[in-house]
Amino acid sequence: MKLGNSSKLGLLLLMAPLLIWLFALILLPHVDMFFLSIREKVAPRVYQTSMANYMEFFNEPLYWNTFARTAVMSILTTAITLLIAFPISYYIAKMLKGRMKAFLFVLCLLPFWVSELVRTFGWMILLRETGIVSSTLQWMGVVDGPIEFLYTDATILVGLVYSSMLFMVVPLVSTLESLDDSYIEAGYDLGGNGFTVLREVVIPHAMPGIVSGCIVVFMLSLGNYLTPVLLGGKDSLWFTEQIYAQFITRFNWEQGAAFGFLLLILSSLIVWAGLKLSRQTLSETMG
């Protein structure tokens, strides 16, 4: 399609707020961050261009171990979220009709009315040594003394899965809703059982929703700061904590910027690998 001059201008004006936003809030800080990340402090107020900040990440095992751990935990979170969200989404999209459907959907949405901080504190109230779960178990006589459920990897996973659930359910429900019942019926009619219909018909159809949900959940978990810090405590070793520490605690902005870029590059690589593995393209998934 060829646009006339006036419609080109119209398009430009329409896009202007988005372009300004992208430029000012995304592009500009990243360019600045990039220049920050490639300079090295050689003396007070004396800097030179070098890759030392990046090399630091690979030379110091703590950093890349933390990154690997964050990535693995995020992948695990994504997988668990998918496993829990898929049946829920299927139930909402295919089994329910009318008001029940809207009701359950809102029920999934409801926790997001309050801030992440409050929700995470909710988990702490439940899981801490003097918390509800611990005291209930003691009252029931299952355990003798108080139990600390907080500050373990499992707790971090629970918190992350909980806070990512909605971002998996929404794309799944919308792709599953677009699956006509007759495909499922045809799947059974031609001799398939529940498992084969799921594998051959439902999942291939829901693939774009699965992949986009997974990308969003993975990115959110990887970039999450609050949940790992509050539920995981000092030993949570989340990569965003390292970035925070460089920027705020150690006031080493150069190192923090390099870590930020590494997080961006490595997470993009993981998403790209995931797309390749599931044979999806980004345009298919987001379109």
């Binding site: 006509d180 495909y183 045809a186 799947g187 009619d189 018909v201 291939p204 693939m207």
Partner: peptide
């Protein structure tokens, strides 16, 4: 076996 109203050929 059934031929559905909108055929239900699997698009994937």
């Amino acid at each position: 076996n059934m031929v559905f109203q909108h055929l239900a050929l699997f698009p994937m």
